[in-house]
Amino acid sequence: MSSALAAARATARPRRPKWRRASTIEPYLYLAPVLVLLALVMFAPLFLGLTYAFRNVQLFDPTENGWVGFQHFEELWTDDAFWHALSNTLWWTFGSLVLQFSGGFGLALLLNKKFGGRKLVQAVVFIPWAVPTFLSGLAWAWLFNPLIGPLSRWLMAVGLLAKPDNILADPDLAMYGPIIANVWFGIPFFAITLLAALHAIPQELYEAAAVDGASAWQRFTRLTLPFLAPTIAITVMLRTIWIATFADLIWVMTNGGPADSTQILATYIFSTAYSKLDFGYASAVAAVLLVLLMLYGVAVVRLRRSLLIS
């Protein structure tokens, strides 16, 4: 070790730290493993998948590999299941997002006050974030199951259900199951990020506002909200994309059923690839989802820009 140090000392140029004249290659050497892996495992399949959208690719039928042009997309246009999944995606994303956000915001505000045992409470209420999604889905599916879970009976007791049936088996109600599980799972995300943003607001501002006679509501709308606005904007946007493509919970709880009532685009892609082994059609649906998400991203960026200008 010491001889290495001596050798290094001999070759070193003491007056000029090396990174100022670092070659353009060196940083890329450090990045190489990640970049190569991403190119092979994410970008290559992404482009390959986009070509599948215009090809006939069935898993166990290697002869069928030809280009079919826009045939999948024409099929899609008249595919009721696709349109149904599209509207379900909106309902699933919007419902989950609103409830996750308000639940998480509420929790962040509660945790922003000092009280005994706050550390412990914080650790416990954030646990759902750490629960693997397949377990979250199973746990909630079990709670809704009238054989072993209490929820159907409780829902009947408060008058929300006429009979203690499993709402996951009812096409009109099934979507509420995964949404509730998703809210349970997602509240910590918003609570954690918003709590961090709340901590960053200078306390003196609140004190000054209180001295000036601002009511609690005024302090909330004039101080807290404007300070949180950037965090809220970015987390909501990212979370929207994340939820819209989040298939695990629905797959575990309902498989998209009953009668496709909980099928969203992400689960439709998965079941078309996994159960029907129709990779071509699955990729066409995936391409549509990708375009929709990109449009959403562009819309958000433009909206933000116009808000900034005004």
Partner: peptide, 21 residues
């Protein structure tokens, strides 16, 4: 930016091509 993009697109769309690769 490239790294950020990978965090945005739906991973579920990679399932079929990755299987075939």
């Amino acid at each position: 930016f490239l790294l950020l993009v990978t965090q945005m697109f739906p991973l579920v769309m990679l399932i079929a091509p990755i299987y075939r690769m």
